[in-house]
């Protein structure tokens, strides 16, 4: 189906997290993304869907992958985009968030994509802005577009999400990716097991409807999907595990360890990877890895989100 003939409606102004979505909404986003994935296979990878709409990409925290993925999605939809980053702009000169928001409002954007190191900043902006806000990662809270592109990737490889056993392994405490993925996967009926050293395991994680263990081998047993998380070395102000060497030995994903999973397991990583820390290159570059598919699918999923928030929502109104 071509995106020009989509017939969907969307009821939300913002996409702040997966926590507030229901399974049906998640399905709408993933189905819409299927249509946009086709655009990426055309010789001319551009459609006029968002011509005349303005998107502000507001990245208070450095990002390569997410930011270029959003930019590419905007360009392929013919939107006009403006980029603000944390360094070399008013954002680093102590301007308050509210002033930033008011200035952005004055530019009359249709959508603002925001990444910030603190949880809740997209929510603060969403309350102040008439434009829609997309959370591109807020601290260790949520990264909804990542979870959606992960789900999209799983669905393409497995044909379903429901009933799959998904093992998510690594630095849970500092990961926004894991929180969004837990919400999404539990809402669509997957079984989620979380593994990592207890020092990076936030309390009462099991109350989010997942199984929790510090035994990576046990988590990998029978897994259909393995998601490795980046060890966020830069966020570790204190010793949460002894050494990188020890981490790799007990929590890193190696080919040998992966044999406990299903034969047709897929291995995912949100990037950027620390090779030899949480994942062995032999796995990252091996036959089970879908890591580069994730990147490719990210563009289609973000196109779908831009479309839903700017076009489908307006039609619904």
């Amino acid at each position: 189906m071509s995106p020009d003939r989509l017939n969907v409606t969307w009821g939300r102004k913002d996409l702040l997290g997966i926590a507030e979505l229901d399974a049906a909404e998640i399905g709408v986003i993933l189905d819409t993304a299927e249509s946009f994935a086709e655009v990426g296979t055309r010789p001319i990878k551009k459609v006029p869907t968002l011509r005349g709409r303005t998107v502000l990409n507001l990245f208070f925290e450095p990002s390569t992958r997410t930011r270029s993925s959003f930019e590419l999605a905007e360009k392929r939809l013919s939107a006009d985009s403006l980029n603000f980053s944390g360094s070399g702009s008013a954002l680093s000169k102590g301007e308050s968030l509210i002033d930033t928001a008011l200035n952005l409002q004055a530019m009359q954007p249709d959508l603002v994509v925001v990444r910030h190191q603190h949880p809740g900043v997209p929510h603060l902006l969403a309350r102040r802005l008439e434009a829609g806000v997309v959370n591109a990662g807020d601290g260790a809270h949520e990264h909804p577009t990542q979870a959606l592109l992960d789900a999209f990737t799983i669905r393409r490889h497995k044909g379903r999400l429901e009933g799959l056993r998904v093992a998510i392994i690594g630095d849970i405490q500092h990961s926004r990716v894991v929180r969004s993925n837990i919400h999404l996967l539990t809402k669509v009926g997957a079984d989620v097991v979380i593994a990592g050293p207890r020092t990076v395991m936030p309390p009462e994680l099991a109350r989010l409807g997942v199984e929790v263990t510090s035994d990576v081998d046990a988590a990998l047993e029978g897994a259909d999907v393995v998601m490795m998380l980046r060890v966020q070395l830069e966020r570790h102000q204190r010793s949460l595990f002894p050494t990188v060497r020890e981490y790799f030995r007990f929590f890193g994903l190696t080919e040998e360890r992966l044999r406990r999973a299903q034969e047709d397991v897929i291995v995912m990583h949100p990037g950027p990877m620390n090779r030899g820390v949480e994942i062995d290159s032999a796995v990252a570059d091996g036959p089970y890895s879908v890591i580069l598919d994730q990147v490719q699918n990210g563009v289609a999923v973000r196109m779908a989100i831009l479309y839903l928030l700017m076009v489908a929502r307006k039609e619904a109104a």
Binding site: A19, P119, G120, H141, R179, P202, P203, L205, R207, L208
Partner: peptide, 13 residues
């Protein structure tokens, strides 16, 4: 406060 809600919100507890 450290607990389920700080875990959900990704805030240090």
């Amino acid at each position: 406060h450290e607990g389920e809600w700080s875990t959900r919100l990704g805030l240090p507890g």
